[in-house]
Structure formats: C-alpha cells, structure tokens
Design a binder for these strands. Structure first.
Length: 151
DNA sequence: TAGGCCATCTGGTCCT
DNA sequence: AGGACCAGATGGCCTA
C-alpha cells in the first residue's frame, strides 16, 4: 500500500475541538495533532509487530509437536496448520480404536511397536518414515506433497 | 525470472 | 479512547 493517504486527522477537517489558545495556534494545533497521530500509528505498528511475533512463536511451537515426515525445510504456516489438523484427527482415530478393543494389552500390542520416537519425528537429515511405514501411511492422511484441503 | 512465503505497514472494525 | 484483531498492499528473500 504505502499510499500515505491523508486522513481526516491530517487534513485539518476535524474542527469539533475548539482551540482557545488564540488565532495563531491553528498551525501549531494541527501539527500537534499530526504528531500525535504519527505517534499512535508508530505505537500501533509496534503492537502489530509484537502480535505477529507472538503468532509466529506459536507456529514454531506447533511445528515442534507436529510430525515433520523428513521434510528438508520447515513447514509453512499453512502446511503446519494442515498437518496439525491431520495429526489431531489421527490421534483421535487411535483413541477411538482403543475404545473398541476390550483388552488394553491387545490394543497396545497392535499399536505400540510403531511408536518409537523416530517413527514420527524427523529431522532434516533423516529419511521420511511415511514412505516406508505402512502404519504411518494409514494413520496420517496429510503429506505435504499430496496435500489437499481437509474438511 | 516467476512464484511462494514471509514481515511489515496500514486502515478499518470491534471490544473494553 | 485505545487496544486487539483482521485483511489488503507491498517489498524482500529464496528456490526451481
């Protein structure tokens, strides 16, 4: 954008606040208004920057708990959200399955062999497990290369 | 070099 | 009135 559109603040249109300091102060008052407006803009910019930084921190934390599947580069924000969605749905499915099994031991033997840490959290140097692990393929629907919007 | 992703600025709207 | 949130615009950086 950067159009520097003149608003009512700097156009001097605002006349509802009467200045009682004499006739010569019109210039001074409007320049003070402009200064204040500029200060408020700068403060708002700083707040917005902080807000977005907080949002990015939250995204980073989310990236850390979401499976990476051997992605070389970090997931984009969009991919992170979609992966989180897929991850949550997968975990929900697992829990639902667990409820269906009467014996906890039966369920554990079915699933737990797949839950080594390196099966679902991969760092750049590692190979993606999703390609080699049919369990992972079954449980997680999201894969960055074959992504489609989940509903 | 085009396209994707991101950070930042900005003005508008809503809420307290 | 001021802060939080949002969406659009813009420019920079990176990669295929």
């Amino acid at each position: 954008m950067k159009t520097c559109k003149s608003s009512h603040l700097d156009s001097g249109v605002e006349s509802d606040t009467q200045c009682r300091s004499g006739a010569g102060c019109v210039m001074k008052c409007s320049s003070e208004r402009m200064e204040n407006a500029a200060k408020r803009r700068l403060a708002a910019n700083a707040r917005e920057r902080r807000r977005m930084q907080g949002l990015n921190t939250a995204f980073d934390r989310l990236r850390k708990v979401v499976p990476q599947w051997g992605q070389d580069k970090k997931l984009s924000k969009y991919e992170t959200l979609q992966m989180a969605l897929s991850y949550i749905m997968a975990l929900t499915r697992i829990l639902a399955e667990a409820e269906r099994y009467s014996s906890e031991r039966e369920w554990i033997s079915l699933h737990c062999e797949h839950f080594h840490a390196d099966s679902y959290h991969h760092y750049p140097a590692q190979k993606p497990a999703v390609n080699s692990d049919p369990y992972a393929q079954r449980v997680f629907s999201y894969h960055p290369e074959h992504f489609q919007i989940a509903n």
